[in-house]
């Protein structure tokens, strides 16, 4: 099932690139707009990179179930015995084409923000563990708004507040890698705990939301 969604995503590779470039553009715009010396950038980096990741994840979420709803395959998925697996596969595919590319490129972004060494690997790790949570929680919002005309704008309103903890701890991990490297592991473990909980429970909520939206 994952294979199918990936296949679909790869055949629409445009979407992957749009999400990635959106992330890069946002991250690049901020230093330009601030016009600050590079001294202050390391302090801004954790929050900014995480906000950009959050926005880029939401950008592509609106279409997560839209096509399945429009072409009728959502019906078939919901009446199959494997709704949970299908939702999980969708979320995994979403992460593989949005969260993962962004994670892979993050060390480069970190360099541009004057981070180095340990800080770069922390940025990478925090995004690696944190961005799947964004996809999981985002899927609930996507499922709730599937088929709505104003879907994409509502999604942001719903999903952003729910994603605050991921953003707070993700950014805190990177921040502490600058100030107090001993604490980094705590944050990464907290993010991992969130990931486990999100992977287990979010697809259940998403499946329930899809049933409601497909009524």
């Amino acid at each position: 099932m994952l294979k199918r969604d990936l296949l679909l995503a790869v055949r629409n590779y445009n979407d992957v690139l749009i999400g990635l470039f959106f992330f890069i553009v946002v991250v690049a715009l901020i230093p330009i707009s601030l016009n600050e010396s590079t001294q202050i950038l390391p302090r801004l980096a954790p929050g900014l990179v995480w906000i950009a990741a959050l926005l880029s994840s939401i950008l592509s979420l609106a279409r997560l179930f839209e096509e399945d709803h429009a072409d009728g395959s959502l019906d078939l998925i919901l009446s199959s015995g494997s709704v949970y697996q299908c939702v999980l596969a969708k979320v995994a595919a979403h992460w593989l084409v949005t969260g993962l590319p962004l994670t892979l490129i993050s060390p480069l972004i970190g360099l541009a923000y004057n981070l180095h060494g340990e800080q770069l690997s922390t940025l990478f790790m925090s995004l690696l563990v944190g961005t799947p949570v964004l996809s999981c929680i985002g899927a609930i919002g996507a499922a709730l708004t599937t088929g709505l005309r104003s879907g994409s704008s509502i999604i942001a309103l719903i999903v952003l507040p729910l994603n605050i903890p991921v953003m707070v701890y993700g950014a805190a991990a990177v921040r502490s890698s600058i100030n107090s490297p001993d604490n980094v592991m705590t944050y990464l473990l907290l993010l991992t705990a969130m990931l486990i909980i999100a992977v287990v429970f979010a697809p259940i909520a998403t499946a329930a939301a899809l049933k409601i939206s497909n009524d």
Binding site: M1, A70, D71, G72, S73, D75
Partner: peptide, 27 residues
Amino acid sequence: RYVGHQNGLKKSLNARENLEFFQQLYG
């Protein structure tokens, strides 16, 4: 087996890939 108004097919996949997916869905 339900066949609705919409065909439930993925436009960018071929017939075989679509049907193999349905096999999985039907267990």
